[in-house]
Write a protein that binds this DNA or RNA. Structure first.
Lengths: 151, 151
DNA sequence: AGCAGATACTTGAGGAACTCAACCATTGAA
DNA sequence: TTCAATGGTTGAGTTCCTCAAGTATCTGCT
């Protein structure tokens, strides 16, 4: 047998590294799926990621927070999206400092396709019995600190 | 329908997106831990990642495979590690095309510290009862395709 | 009112990481 | 020997990102 498969005789340390590796591997697959879906739509990864985070009208600052990156970075990414005609900047009349991002029709369409395709790939990936999926969700939720299961 | 918080009445589709988000969030935390551990050792993320993948003497090609990236990319990363005196290139006498990467003493030391610190942060993150940790491992293992659990 | 300080965004410089195409050296086999 | 395949490097080019500085606008305080 391969020495990492089914042995209950593993240290807690080893279990931790295994967990970390698995999370990275899973995230890697997910990202790969997302990126190739993005590539099919001729979108660089970061622009695609920004696109799926847009709904309604979003101030650039908020987008920067969601992507947890510098504001000036968002400027560049949005420049790209605007160049492609997927989004427009509208200055908020209530506070003329902020620019609200609004999807164009094409942007809307592209976002939906992107979301659908990457969702499909994710569905393939999480091919588990339904109970296991919820179980996995619950475990990850506590790890991610996004809140307990039973409120 | 904009609401997505805590209802147990969620569609399978929603469960999938939730899973994807959670995996990304968890991986993000892990990476953040790793990156800041790397920064403390004055290492850029990619170089740090390469470093922890080195043990004994590894051909550059193998490293490229482990990192699943282009060979020329590895050249640049190893250039950085060599500049810092953490690794040396040795031409393999058996096949003079291949260069084997060998850690220097300092490289060894730095790698161990890095591994230890990022492991610590991972341990903090995966703060679960022991049974849950194994359960999580098993679920992720099937998802990551690293082998079925019940043969 | 008016000024000080915060906030939203942009610009520019700079760097890290990555890919691709072209290239050299070496190997292994027809 | 000759030729295709392999390991590695180089150089061009892109994307993504950060930091420092600058502009415009808003808010709080006096």
């Amino acid at each position: 047998m391969t020495d990492q498969a089914a042995g209950p005789a593993e240290s807690a340390d080893q279990l931790i590294t295994e967990l970390a590796d698995l999370v990275f591997a899973t995230a890697g697959r997910l990202r790969h799926g997302f990126n190739s879906a993005a590539a099919e739509l001729d979108l660089p990864p970061a622009q695609a990621l920004a696109l799926v985070n847009l709904r309604g009208s979003v101030p650039m600052r908020d987008l920067a927070d969601q992507l947890s990156c510098d504001a000036s970075n968002v400027t560049g990414i949005v420049d790209g999206l605007e160049r492609r005609g997927l989004v427009t900047r509208c200055t908020d009349p209530a506070d003329r400092r902020v620019k609200r991002l609004v999807l164009t029709d094409e942007g809307q369409r592209r976002r939906d396709v992107l979301a659908a395709r990457s969702h499909d790939r994710a569905t393939e990936l999480f091919d588990l019995p339904d109970g296991d999926r919820q179980r996995l969700r619950d475990l990850l939720a506590t790890v991610a600190g996004t809140g307990q299961r039973h409120p």
